[in-house]
Every structure is written in structure tokens, then in C-alpha cells.
Design a protein around this nucleic acid. Structure first.
Lengths: 112, 112
DNA sequence: ATATATACCTAAGAAAATTATGTATATAAA
DNA sequence: TTTATATACATAATTTTCTTAGGTATATAT
């Protein structure tokens, strides 16, 4: 796990990117996918995730579909066209930012 | 300029790295150096910078040396041995984080 | 005179996260 | 069988971190 400080400000970008590459995902699924993809190094907390999902929906970049699974509910989120554009912008901006930080911190460019 | 959201959580790492590579620097100098090195893409704000410098000093990772320049004061910060260690840890953690985010967001590894 | 640059600082408020808590079902383990 | 863990949603209080705005003061360029 990274220090929480370091992960700040990346949540929206991560959510939008994953939903951009998937038809639909629900909140809990997002936490598990991120945990899996990062080998446990990034773990989304529910207290941060759910309010952010609600905000993104209110903003019109995500839409929802509530489904009953057994007796529990599951809220699927999918990305809207506006959201797809935003996801692209955010990912591109982050890519640029990473290059800037790589230079600023004197890190070796990643040569695979 | 990047969206402020994106820069969150990187301030301490940036300060520690620059002071780690320099004998001493003062606050205003740090803002100018970062602006110059990033082509204006990252600009430290004084409201964030000064409280953070004070906190790092209180924490024992920075020490200060106040100098009179003409009639104005200038407060030079230099990094302590503890601070040098912390700078290393933070930069290494950030390097790792960048790799994780590069993978998670599906970015091309930087091939120069 | 006025604006910009240098150089420090703090305080109110906003933004974003953590921590803690709540509800509820399902399943595996002791 | 009851206890812990996993699934699955949610909110509220608090903390952290930053922005915005303001304050003090000198030097220099317009």
C-alpha cells in the first residue's frame, strides 16, 4: 500500500478509466479490480468511492442501473459519452503529469 | 497548468527532492525553480508552500537559516540527514506509484 | 504614481480523503 | 451454531491538504 497522501487526486481518473474500458461495473467490483490490477498497492476505500461515484453521476458522466442480485442490490455504473471524453482528457493529462514528475524527480524513464 | 486535483499530495516529495539536490534554498526560490523546471505546468502556491515548510522543519527533516538581504529577510532551508532519508523513500515510492498508475491507466511506458 | 517582482506569513474556507458506523445477506470456518 | 469474512450498499464526523484571500514590506521598472 502506498502512503495515502500519494494516491490523493487520482480516484476520479481511475474510476473513469476502468469504466471507459468496461461495459458496466458496480462499486464493489471497482474496488476489487483495482486491488487486483495493482497487486494490492492501491485499495479504494468505500468512504471515498461511493460519494465520488454519486458526484460523477450527478455530473452526468456516469449513469446507473440498479439490479437485484438475490436479496441484495447492486448498482451498476456505465460511462456516458460525455464521461468517455472526460476519461480521455483525464488520462491524457495524467500521462503528461507523469512525464513532468519523472523529470522533476530525476527518475529514469521507464524502458520496460 | 495541471488541474489542481492532480497535483495533490506531491508537494512534500517535490520540496524534499529539490532540497536533497541543493545545499540550501529559500521558499520563493523553490516556487521559481519548480515553475522553471516544469515549464510553468506546476506552480507552488505560497499558501500551501510555507505551512508545509514549517511542518517539515517541525518534523526535523529541514533546518533553517535566516539571512538579511538588504532590508528583507530570506529564510534558507536545508535538508537534515533524516530528511535526506525521507526524500529518498518518498521519491522511490513515487517512482513505484508512477509505474503502477502507468499500468493501471494503460499508458505507454516512456521510451524517451 | 503604479505595477510587478521579491519575500515572508497567516487565516478562512473548500475539497478530498480517512475513519467509523450503519444496514443487510451469504458463506466458510471454528 | 455462532463467529468471521465476504459481498454490497450508504452516510457522517473528522482530518488532511489545498485554494483563496489577505497582510506586511522593500526594490525596481514603467
Amino acid at each position: 500500500m502506498y502512503s495515502s497522501e500519494l494516491i490523493k487526486g487520482t480516484l476520479k481518473t481511475i474510476i473513469l478509466k476502468l469504466l471507459s474500458d468496461s461495459d458496466e461495473m458496480y462499486g464493489y467490483e471497482l474496488t476489487q479490480r483495482v486491488k487486483e490490477l495493482t497487486g494490492g498497492k492501491i485499495q479504494l476505500t468505500e468512504g471515498a468511492l461511493y460519494p465520488t461515484l454519486h458526484a460523477l453521476e450527478a455530473q452526468g458522466v456516469l449513469s446507473t442501473n440498479v439490479v437485484n442480485v438475490g436479496n441484495r442490490i447492486r448498482k451498476y455504473y456505465s460511462i456516458t459519452p460525455t464521461g468517455k471524453q472526460l476519461a480521455n482528457d483525464k488520462v491524457n493529462e495524467y500521462a503528461d503529469f507523469i512525464q513532468t514528475m519523472t523529470f522533476l524527480l530525476g527518475l529514469k524513464p521507464n524502458l520496460g
